[in-house]
């Protein structure tokens, strides 16, 4: 099982390096330059391929502490996926709804989702911080952040 981890990662990396190598060999070449744009990528691709093969055949020497990191309890997996989902939604709607609305909602719901129970404090924090940052950027520094559907 433990050797399996290195084998799997090695395999994934080997596939990645082959993809990268394939793209390196597609790069256009120019006659006027002694070391072309594809030289370094090709080298890197081959080196990574060799290293990932080496990884496949190497023993897993990680400490027990390190191995413990790989076992994530199910509740934590759910929490992580939830945060990633919130982030994805945030990014997708960021420019449509605007900085303030999205950030306020994100901070509030992300904290709630992670188990923060004091809703009043949560509401205050999640409104004050984004609004403050927005004002600093937009009004003080004249750097535009997406205003979205709000009129300011």
């Amino acid at each position: 099982m433990l050797q399996g981890v290195n084998r799997k990662i090695g395999l994934i990396l080997a596939i990645l390096s082959i993809g990268y190598l394939y793209m390196s060999y597609q790069l256009p070449t120019y006659s006027y330059i002694p070391v072309d744009a594809d030289a370094v990528p090709k080298t890197l691709g081959w080196v990574l391929l060799v290293l990932s093969v080496a990884l496949i055949f190497s023993k897993d020497n990680d400490s027990e502490e390190q191995k413990a990191k790989r076992r994530i309890p199910k509740t934590d997996v759910k929490a992580l996926l939830g945060v990633v989902a919130l982030l994805l939604i945030y990014i997708m709607l960021f420019e449509t709804l605007g900085f303030i609305i999205m950030t306020v909602l994100f901070v509030y719901f992300c904290s709630w989702f992670l188990g923060y129970k004091s809703h009043i404090v949560n509401a205050i924090v999640s409104i004050v911080f984004p609004v403050a940052i927005y004002s600093i950027f937009v009004f003080m520094l004249q750097i535009k952040l997406p205003q979205g559907i709000l009129p300011f």
């Binding site: 939830g82 939604i89 909602l105």
Partner: peptide, 12 residues
């Protein structure tokens, strides 16, 4: 948690 997520979505 589910509640938090779904309210978030609805509001959006």
């Amino acid at each position: 948690k589910l509640l938090a997520l779904s309210i978030f979505l609805l509001m959006l």
